[in-house]
């Protein structure tokens, strides 16, 4: 279990990740021996019930949480402390209230000390790509939830990170906006070739977006199974929904998640 996770070409390597929280009275195991290798360009979706440690897993990869034991590597370098080569999107858009959409996106550049002109060009590209044109100056409270999340996504993509980590990014959106955002994210992933790890509650979202779906058990979080998604690389939302392969996989996942919950 102590084997180095850095196989050649691995974007993210996790091996034997365990996280225990010790409170005064008891010890909780949030993650139990999680090992997973993710190749560059993959879109891995992680589904599991609430409290299975999915979010903690992302934070470990980002270097924001230290595992109790186990090894993580990002782009073949061991993770120690916060990582810069990533873009992070949370469930909440977490925008700065006092900045307009474009200024919020450019926060990424300012914090990193990136070249201004180049960052501005990239921001305009992203604004156009995500359909935020016309809202560059709008403050967060003037934007809908979906728009806010688009701004957060642009901010996470501004520095063209090789790895994008998303923690239930569309969980707070209504169903229609969510589908739309899924389609957009799929398109962006195809265009940028970024490695994406996305945590979600939604089986449909996991299957539609993922090239691989990882299913986790309730606390203590373990990986129960990993499913490759046998759908074309270029997906259309309506087509995928009516594809029998989608149905089969979604049913399998639902069954697996259901039995995992029932055993608990």
């Amino acid at each position: 279990m102590t084997a180095a996770p850095a196989a050649t070409g691995t974007a993210i390597g996790m091996s034997g990740l365990t996280v225990r929280f010790t409170t005064r009275r008891s010890q909780t195991t949030a993650l139990d021996d999680v090992s997973l290798d993710i190749e560059p360009g993959e879109f891995v979706t992680i589904v599991g019930p609430s409290g299975c440690g999915k979010s903690t897993l992302l934070k470990i990869v980002a270097g924001l949480v230290k595992p109790t034991s186990g090894d993580v590597s990002l782009l073949q370098r061991p993770v120690r402390g916060p990582q810069k080569e990533i873009g992070f999107v949370f469930q909440k858009a977490a925008l700065l209230e006092w900045r307009g959409a474009r200024a919020n996106i450019l926060l990424q550049a300012e914090m990193r000390g990136m070249d201004r002109a180049q960052a501005a060009r990239r921001a305009d590209e992203l604004i156009e790509m995500t359909g935020l044109t016309g809202f560059e100056k709008a403050l967060p409270h003037e934007l809908s939830g979906g728009m806010q999340q688009r701004v957060a996504l642009c901010r996470a993509l501004l520095h063209s990170p090789p790895v994008l980590l998303m923690d239930e990014p569309f969980g707070a959106l209504d169903a229609l906006t969510r589908e739309q955002m899924n389609a957009e994210l799929h398109r962006i992933w195809r265009e940028t070739g970024t490695t994406v790890v996305l945590v979600t509650h939604s089986i449909a979202e996991a299957v539609f977006l993922g090239t691989r779906v990882v299913v986790m058990s309730p606390r203590p979080g373990r990986i129960i199974r990993t499913f490759p998604v046998e759908l074309p690389a270029h997906r259309d939302y309506a087509q995928v929904m009516s594809d029998p392969r989608f149905d089969r996989l979604a049913t399998d996942l639902r069954g697996l998640l259901g039995s995992a919950a029932a055993n608990h």
């Binding site: 909440k92 409270h141 809908s144 728009m147």
Partner: peptide
């Protein structure tokens, strides 16, 4: 004030205004 989640819940109305 500052409640992003609640604003998300009001998605329909807000986006139509915008």
């Amino acid at each position: 004030p500052g409640s992003v989640d609640a604003a998300g819940g009001l998605d329909g109305t807000v986006s139509s205004t915008v």
